[in-house]
């Protein structure tokens, strides 16, 4: 059913935060789960992680990056307008335990996905280290929020404008080399980043969870669009995931599958930009 937009604001270059009316989703959502939305009647169905929810107010918050037509269209919607469809919560919630020393790693807009999980890890009693990465300091997300929940915070920027000049993987590498105790890692970000993290933790055998952003249509396990190879087996990111054991994910296949509609995406984006006169 349609969902009313409470607010839709730019919070970083190309990154927006949208608050939507969704009382039932707000009530049922648990960290790690996502929603699927359609902006308009001819729109495609896309998955986005729920970053925050307010069961009292009956709202959910999403943070998204403008990459193609649908996210661009979404960013043009104003407070008071409605989205055509909103459904959720979908996917499995993150398996949260008191692992001991947990490291939550976010890259780019992936940080928005990690935040609710990091919060849940903290609430479960973990010692929480957060490694946050972005292109520049303007691209850093939820800084205030993560400062409040982390026991230790490491910021990285690609251009060195804030924190460590480098990638999140370099910070983790240092931690592993210094034989720091790490019981659990969750990493969400661009596929090359998740791959790098997974390779670092493979040798020391550190439990590592990643969240996959496969292309989806229905989100309830009936089409197989989002299928990934995990430990050589076929899994659906929408119902078996979206989180999986990072050491078992075939990232190469996943990256190939993410590119399947590249030409269509470029065409749709161009067409939309022309229509909007940008």
């Amino acid at each position: 059913m349609p969902s009313k937009i409470i607010s839709n604001e730019k919070i970083a270059p190309e990154i927006f935060k949208i608050v939507l009316v969704a009382p039932q989703i707000a009530k049922k959502h648990r960290a790690g789960q996502f929603i699927i939305l359609r902006v308009g009647e001819r729109g495609e169905r896309i998955p986005l992680t729920v970053v925050e929810k307010d069961p009292q107010a009956g709202t959910i918050t999403l943070i998204y990056q403008v990459v193609g037509k649908t996210t661009m269209w979404l960013s043009d919607k104003k407070a008071g307008e409605e989205l055509q469809d909103l459904v959720g919560p979908l996917g499995n919630p993150t398996e949260i335990e008191n692992f001991g020393n947990a490291v939550a790693i976010g890259g780019g807009v992936g940080c928005a996905c990690v935040y609710p999980i990091a919060k849940a890890l903290k609430e479960a009693g973990n010692h929480l280290t957060i490694i946050w990465g972005a292109r520049t300091k303007e691209h850093l997300l939820l800084e205030k929020e993560i400062a409040e929940i982390s026991d230790r915070l490491e910021i990285c920027t690609d251009d060195g404008s804030k924190g460590t000049h480098g990638f999140v993987s370099e910070v983790l590498k240092r931690m592993i080399e210094q034989k720091e105790k790490i019981d659990y890692v969750i990493a969400v970000g661009p596929v090359p980043m998740m791959r790098a993290i997974v390779e670092l933790t493979r040798g020391p055998g550190i439990r590592t969870v990643v969240s996959l952003n496969s292309i989806m249509v229905d989100g309830t396990g009936m089409c197989g669009s989002c299928r990934v190879l995990v430990g050589g087996e076929r899994k659906f990111a929408c119902v078996d995931g979206p989180e999986f054991d990072g050491h078992k994910v075939d990232f190469k296949n996943m990256m190939t599958r993410l590119r399947v509609y590249k030409e269509f995406e470029d065409l749709a984006k161009e067409k939309y930009q022309e229509e909007r006169g940008r």
């Binding site: 169905r45 249509v217 009936m222 089409c223 399947v260 509609y261 995406e265 749709a268």
Partner: peptide, 29 residues
């Protein structure tokens, strides 16, 4: 698992439910 292999459900859902045969008038490819 290659690009271009569809389950019939996905192929038909994109086409019938999401009207992908009308792309780019409809957004689903």
């Amino acid at each position: 698992e290659l690009n271009g292999v569809y389950s019939a459900n996905e192929f038909l859902t994109r086409n019938n439910l999401m009207k992908a045969f009308k792309f780019p008038e409809y957004d689903t490819p």
